[in-house]
Design a protein around this nucleic acid. Structure first.
Length: 279
DNA sequence: ATGCCTTGGTCACCAAGA
């Protein structure tokens, strides 16, 4: 299985290049974030013509997530248990949930396309919402893996955290003043790893960014950030055979400000047992 | 430590992104 994640920054503004990429790169599962449309506005036809099933979840011009897959998606969910909401500057258990998570089981893998809240600024209600949201995600991860340690679980998407200083190449993002690099955010990312997940791209691609701001020639200057990740449980991480960060997708006409991150998985399954042994 | 881009909605600006 070739699994990809991409914050597309509006699916309708660039559906051509996204479908072209998925076909050209033989993507089996494409998790998308920031589709920026309602579910019913998603260009399903374009993906279906190219041989994909799609589940999309959005209800305004903000946020929105989707998964396109060559194989059918089962057990589709539009929030993980305990996922907090946010509304008009306050968070809490009473606030409505946003369209930031969609999960499905595909080829034996539980895949979640996640758009972690931005945080806006240190101390903003949105910042505490971000930390609460990540805490609930860690809890869901540890609960799931406690129930089934062999579960193939992949949390992929835009985590809006640069886990190390080397992941922040943007001088406008200043430790002590900016979100994405604060200790509590980095601790929230570490908590996901402590819950049983591994960044499966990092061992193969130790450095490099996945996002460059549109403003001020950030891409030509290579002042980007690594904030998009593929986190996998043990069953996923041991199946990884390759990874690519498609930096070229930041070039050309009307790019997203993020690029796709891709892993190849050689998963154990019933098909393997049925396959004849040939030497 | 921000104005700069880019998108979408609503009606010439504004919110939001990170």
């Amino acid at each position: 299985m070739r699994l990809a994640t991409w914050n597309v920054n509006s699916i309708r503004a660039r559906v051509d290049r996204i479908v072209d990429f998925a076909v050209r790169e033989h993507i089996d599962v494409l998790a998308m974030q920031e589709i920026k449309c309602k579910s019913e506005q998603f260009p399903f036809d374009r993906f279906e013509e190219a041989g994909f099933h799609v589940e999309a979840y959005g209800f305004s011009q903000w946020n929105g997530v989707a998964i396109a897959s060559r194989e059918p998606l089962t057990n589709v969910r539009t929030a993980f248990p305990g996922m907090p909401g946010f509304e008009k500057g306050h968070n809490g258990p009473d606030a409505p949930q946003e369209a930031r998570a969609i999960g499905a089981t595909i080829g034996g893998v539980e895949v979640w396309s996640l758009y972690v809240p931005n945080g806006r600024s240190l101390g903003d209600p949105h910042y505490f919402y971000k930390l609460d949201w990540l805490s609930a995600l860690s809890q869901y991860t540890s609960d799931s893996l406690a129930g089934n340690p062999d579960l193939a679980l992949a949390l992929v998407g835009d985590f809006n955290i640069a886990p190390t200083d080397a992941d922040n190449g943007d001088p406008a993002v200043v430790p002590g003043f900016s979100t994405h690099v604060s200790p509590p955010e980095r601790e929230a990312f570490a908590a996901l790893e402590a819950a049983g997940l591994q960044d499966v791209v990092r061992p193969l691609i130790p450095t490099g960014y996945t996002y460059w701001d549109y403003k001020r020639l950030k891409f030509p200057r290579n002042e980007g950030m690594r904030i998009d990740f593929i986190l996998g449980s043990h069953a996923v991480s041991e199946a990884v055979t390759g990874a690519t960060i498609h930096r070229n997708e930041r070039k050309g006409e009307a790019p997203s400000d993020h690029v796709p991150v891709v892993v190849d998985l050689d998963l154990e399954g019933p098909d393997d047992d049925d396959r004849p042994m040939i030497f």
